[in-house]
């Protein structure tokens, strides 16, 4: 029963969309039927296969940006959690960078890194780094408050305390940060590829928008949606695998 209403909602919505597109609006510049979108998506995936270059171009930007963000965000987050001095000096700059709409930096980064992949990776990086950093920071702070005493009573040295207790215990927080970063990273990809790109999913959407090619526009939007959900689910699975004790706690 529970699933039925959901399915009905999806089916009903799609039918409504089809009816709107075909009988009410009847203008392929404004709206096309979901059937047309699915057909176009099938064609781009399996017949002409011209979606793949865009997909790969976007993937590499996303991948490098995300990796860099993790490499910078996690250690800086840890440092800020462990040293109030570092935190106080970095915090104001971080607040400024984090709360500014990222698009504002895009032209500046373009100026600095050129229109090649460098500036695009930088834009994705800027989007991903803060959720990762902030989560690592909070994770390490919570963990270091809770577990340092335990480590002390076992007479662990600083290094071993970090490796054996603090690092593993903050893994769930880091993973949660990575999960949040996926969505922001995808937005970053779309922003990055809009400036001076010749391929990629973002380019595809903007090009389709400018040439009023509705089927391709919808395919692009749908691919973004699918990627967002997949990335989120993927990291959720990793989180469950990496932190089996969380499941046990919930079961209790």
């Amino acid at each position: 029963m529970k699933g039925m209403l959901r399915l009905a909602s999806i089916a009903g919505g799609l039918v409504l969309w089809h009816v709107l597109a075909v009988w009410v609006i009847d203008d392929s510049v404004l709206l096309v039927s979901p059937l047309v979108v699915v057909a176009k998506g099938y064609e781009m995936l399996f017949v002409t296969a011209d979606l793949y270059p865009h997909l790969f171009a976007s993937w590499w930007i996303f991948f490098y940006g995300m990796i860099l963000a993790a490499l910078v965000g996690i250690p800086v987050g840890f440092l800020m959690a462990l040293s109030p001095l570092v935190r106080d000096y970095i915090a104001p700059w971080m607040t400024a960078l984090y709360t500014t709409p990222r698009i504002a930096f895009a032209p500046v980064l373009l100026l600095w890194f050129g229109i090649d992949i460098g500036s695009k990776i930088a834009i994705v990086f800027l989007g991903c780094v803060f959720p990762i950093l902030i989560n690592s920071f909070y994770g390490m702070r919570v963990v270091s408050r809770e577990f340092v005493e335990v480590g002390r009573s076992f007479r662990l040295s600083g290094g071993r305390l970090f490796l054996k207790i603090l690092l593993p215990a903050s893994v769930p927080f880091i993973l949660a940060g990575l999960r949040l970063a996926v969505g922001r990273g995808l937005t970053g990809v779309a922003i990055a590829e809009w400036f001076g790109a010749t391929e990629g999913l973002g380019y595809l959407i903007f090009f389709a928008g400018q040439t009023l090619n509705m089927p391709i526009l919808f395919v692009g939007v749908a691919v973004f949606g699918v990627l967002g959900v997949l990335g989120f689910q993927f990291l959720q699975i990793i989180e469950d695998l990496a932190t089996p004790w969380k499941k046990e706690l919930e079961a209790k």
């Binding site: 969505g183 995808l186 937005t187 990809v189 779309a190 922003i191 809009w194 973002g202 959407i205 903007f206 389709a208 928008g209 400018q210 526009l217 692009g220 939007v221 973004f224 949606g225 967002g228 959900v229 989120f232």
Partner: peptide, 9 residues
């Protein structure tokens, strides 16, 4: 779940 930017065009 779809990035904001994708909707803008």
């Amino acid at each position: 779940s779809i990035p904001v930017i994708a909707f803008v065009p």
